[in-house]
Design a protein around this nucleic acid. Sequence first.
DNA 1: ATAACTGATACTATATTGATATCAATTAAA
DNA 2: TTTAATTGATATCAATATAGTATCAGTTAT
Lengths: 145, 145
Amino acid sequence: MKVLTKKTDYAIRALLMLGSRRGEYVSAKTISTDQDIPYQFLRGLLQEMIRYDLIVSKEGAQGGFMMKKEPDEIPIAQLIEIFQGKVQVSECMFRKQICANRSRCVLRHEIMRIEQVVNSEFDKVTIGKLLRDLEAANGMAHGCG
Amino acid sequence: MKVLTKKTDYAIRALLMLGSRRGEYVSAKTISTDQDIPYQFLRGLLQEMIRYDLIVSKEGAQGGFMMKKEPDEIPIAQLIEIFQGKVQVSECMFRKQICANRSRCVLRHEIMRIEQVVNSEFDKVTIGKLLRDLEAANGMAHGCG
DNA sequence: ATAACTGATACTATATTGATATCAATTAAA
DNA sequence: TTTAATTGATATCAATATAGTATCAGTTAT
Ligand code: FES
Ligand code: FES
């Protein structure tokens, strides 16, 4: 069970990079090289994030991408939603056969509760928070792993 | 983002059925028809659950499957693990380039925390609990949805 | 003018998920 | 003892999702 797909993972890393260089335009190429993300794949992700108003772009030479939204206002829950779709447990048979399969309903009830827990956890972790964690880690200047 | 795949979903429903008819052998065909699960697909799931000692089988006419483990001792976290693999966030670049990508580490740290929260939630929900919920729901005998 | 860029989109490859098919072995019961 | 109902074990296929590539037109700093 993979919680984060490459898309979400890359998107987060790209945002962390933009977040640490606010006010300047950073090119897709720079991000791609620095974060080791396939160039064209990254381009697609960046365009998607523009559509969601997370970042802005500038075309042409010396162009690139820049944070638009406040890092603290970007929970990774949103990125998961954008790149992996809303967290859903399993489609309900509701429409097909209303409650013919009651056992399914019970399951569904429990799972929706969990879904909320999961979502609220992912909501707590914002790009801003990660950036601060990052700074702290760099400040301490010791290896990790 | 799909939390439960068909496999897990079907497995849970099959177990709920076996759990509500403990002590008797229920055939794959019966489960398949009753729960609307593709027959051969279900067979595979049942065999897998035998390997994990959740259920036992009896071959031949009047054969079928029966609960082995106590329903309260089967958290759906285990079923998710069996049918969808352990919850993992995203593979760490750790081995490739040790901490060259520190931002990834920070992310990883947060995510592993969430992973624990999620797992502990899924651990709380057992087949036994779902069975009791189910009984209660049936006892109340009113529609749901 | 040109090189460094993004916008937009089409395409390919690989992996995962979901489902089906087949045949041998076992067993209850006619 | 035959037969029908069953599981065991695999092989195969189809559909979908994920990951990655390629191309070309348009924009802009130098
Ligand atoms: S790169 Fe993963 S722990 Fe350092
Ligand atoms: S069948 Fe889904 S709510 Fe009743």
